[in-house]
Design a protein around this nucleic acid. Structure first.
Lengths: 189, 189
DNA sequence: GCGTTTTGTTTACAGTGTCAACATCCATGC
DNA sequence: GCATGGATGTTGACACTGTAAACAAAACGC
């Protein structure tokens, strides 16, 4: 094994990981490119060999987050079927946001450029669309379901709704489930 | 009228206004305290006579946004009654976010400290709670309604949902209205 | 009128993202 | 086996940021 002092095995991955750690520890304010580089034991300019600029690194971090979110949704979806599966996904979505608030904000709440979240969206969409009753638009239903859980997560994160940590899961599950029941009610037109 | 060269009349208000203009023009990235001060023709340290730090100024800007949002909701609410009023509020909420994307993000999507949005919340809550059927929790219903429109706005702002500007209002109205109809469907338990 | 308080200014410092020029290492030709 | 070229990392510099400390000027109370 060579010296490893100059060339860093896999700096790109190390940078993303360090950024994630900083994010969990100190929030978005702690995300300085120089700091991240320092954490990796590397100079301030080294990241530019792997990312065009700071935003590009942040995009990679967000991408990591989306993968993890998709994993969580998939896992939750497998625990039940039908409407209950949708409720489980809703609760998992909110739980993810609460577990990684700064990451969640980074993923969504910045004028990002790319950071594809379609994988996570697809998992939720599959469940939601299957619930569409006659005369209900599957597209609208999916969008509504996503909006509901996303908005709930965002409001909780911003302390806009006074909820104890212990209540969050129950509320998310209840609301999502009630929403899912909407599909058996009277339909439009 | 005295010289007005040293003392600025009402700097505090001018700073908030300048910040709002910068926000509309260049997004959150253009919000530098020094730049805002420059826009007001004042030195970099002058803002500190009126705000503890940059975040305090941003809080004031967010507060301004919440007032405006409340005004929009109130206005929309007056255009109709019952479920239609809720749908109108939903559309107005989303429209506000689309009209002032950077401000909306500033209001919600940062680890703020205060910036009270309870006025806007109250207007929506009043309508939503009135729609709660027997066995439905007014609190849950209100939270769900808010989450729905807030999430929809956030997702649209982040281009997570491919919507033409022209479609936004229709979708928001449709989804909110469909949600409101949920209250006449079969209830929990 | 004078002192106090409020409001701005100047200067300075540490920290940021990023450009340009340079250094070092690794893999590949011969 | 060694020069060479491309990848990777470094140093130094620049313009910019938020903010602390010390000072200056205008406004107000008596």
């Amino acid at each position: 094994m060579p010296d490893k002092d100059y060339h860093h095995g896999d700096l790109r991955a190390a940078l993303v990981l360090a950024a994630l750690e900083r994010l969990e520890a100190g929030g978005a304010a702690a995300l300085s490119l120089r700091g991240i580089a320092r954490d990796c034991g590397v100079s301030a300019m080294a990241p530019y060999r792997h990312f065009a600029d700071k935003d590009a690194l942040l995009d990679a971090v967000a991408g990591h987050g989306f993968q993890e979110l998709a994993r969580c949704l998939e896992e939750a979806d497998a625990t039940a079927g039908g409407r209950e599966a949708l409720a489980a996904q809703g609760a998992a979505y909110v739980a993810f946001a609460c577990r990684h608030p700064a990451l969640f904000r980074l993923m969504f709440m910045a004028p990002r450029r790319s950071s594809d979240g379609s994988a996570a969206y697809a998992i939720l969409a599959r469940r939601a669309a299957a619930l569409a009753g006659p005369g209900q638009s599957a597209g609208d239903l999916t969008l509504a379901a996503w909006s509901l859980v996303h908005g709930l997560a965002a409001l909780i994160l911003d302390r806009r709704v006074p909820l104890e940590p212990g209540e969050v899961d129950g509320v998310a599950r209840r609301i999502t489930l009630a929403f899912a029941r909407m599909t058996e009610g009277p339909t439009v037109g």
